[in-house]
């Protein structure tokens, strides 16, 4: 017979102690390597701090200065434009490929591998390769010129550098594809069978069954992609014609590139930390809003 008596306080203490002991390595790394640096960044953002010579507290001056800097707003604007293009594109391509691969097609494993491989390549390698493709005489323009049209200067045109960045970044849609594929396979078959009996078309099934059923996954991917977009950095460093970080002009000067320049080219750690703190707050606010909005659009299975 199992006793219904609650465990004694000494037993509970022992249990809590064991749990804490097992959690300790994780807690240690969380505090030392995550919360610690974040806290230190916030402290540095209130200081005039240079790598050489140390620093002293100056209140919120760094924040005043960064908000007055037009490059701060340029970086923010470029980053949001990138997010607006990247998030829907990565969603559409990831879901589309997952949807295709969820069907009964031949060599399914092979196609999955082909689509996933770019996702395991380093971003820098993908972008360097992509840069050659987007050169004035690169593969992309060579293909365009087959139609008799002169290809544009993708990497030298302020209006095309961001679309080019997005095109190369969604080459790595394999990660999203895998996540969506898992979600698609989790949609109960009987829902489609019932819909078919009711005469719902394939597109109707997609919009009324598939999308609502995988909406928690879409939400998850959206949060991840938006945060990824906020931190976007490498395309602005590698892609522009002439190896001009942030170029042409300031058209690919993303927010994170601005932080990088302040921290590692000017060694102005105070302002760089203020910029980083703003980015953390921004990520939190945007994530909060997405989660709030999700109540209306995300369907959680009961």
């Amino acid at each position: 017979m199992i006793s219904k008596k609650p465990p004694s306080s000494s037993l509970r203490k022992g249990y809590t102690g064991t749990v804490l002991l097992f959690l300790l390595p994780w807690l240690f790394s969380l505090i030392v390597f995550w919360y610690g640096p974040i806290l230190y960044t916030v402290i540095l953002s209130l200081m005039k701090y240079r790598l050489i010579g140390g620093g002293y507290f100056i209140g919120f001056s760094n924040y005043t200065k960064i908000f007055q800097d037009k490059l701060f707003w340029t970086g923010l604007q470029n980053t949001f434009v990138f997010i607006l293009m990247y998030v829907p594109a990565n969603f559409a391509l990831g879901l589309f490929t997952a949807y295709l691969l969820n069907m009964n097609i031949k060599f399914k494993g092979f196609w999955r591998a082909i689509i996933y491989v770019p996702a395991v390549l380093p971003v820098v390698a993908v972008l360097v390769l992509g840069k050659f493709m987007f050169y004035p005489n690169g593969l992309v323009n060579t293909l365009i010129e087959l139609t008799g049209i002169k290809g544009p200067l993708w990497l030298a045109n302020p209006n095309l550098i961001k679309p080019a960045s997005v095109m190369l970044m969604i080459w790595q849609c394999g990660t999203a594809m895998v996540v969506y594929l898992g979600a698609l396979q989790g949609v109960p078959k009987h829902l489609y069978e019932a819909a078919e009996i009711d005469g719902l078309s394939h597109s109707g099934q997609f919009f009324h069954i598939t999308i609502p059923m995988i909406s928690p996954t879409i939400l998850f991917r959206m949060v991840i992609d938006v945060i990824f977009g906020l931190m976007i950095f490498v395309p602005g460093l590698i892609l522009p014609e002439g190896n001009v970080p942030g170029g042409p002009g300031t058209s690919s000067r993303f927010y994170a590139l601005h932080i990088y320049e302040k921290a590692f080219q000017r060694f102005n750690l105070g302002e760089a930390s203020a910029l980083a703190t703003v980015l953390i707050l921004l990520s939190m606010v945007i994530t909060f809003f997405i989660m709030r909005m999700s109540n209306r659009y995300v369907h959680y299975e009961a």
């Binding site: 522009p240 002439g242 001009v244 320049e261």
Partner: peptide, 18 residues
Amino acid sequence: DTLKPWLRDIPSRRIAGE
């Protein structure tokens, strides 16, 4: 790191009409 890339950016910016 800084001035050199900005100057190297002149052709792109001129093509863009600045």
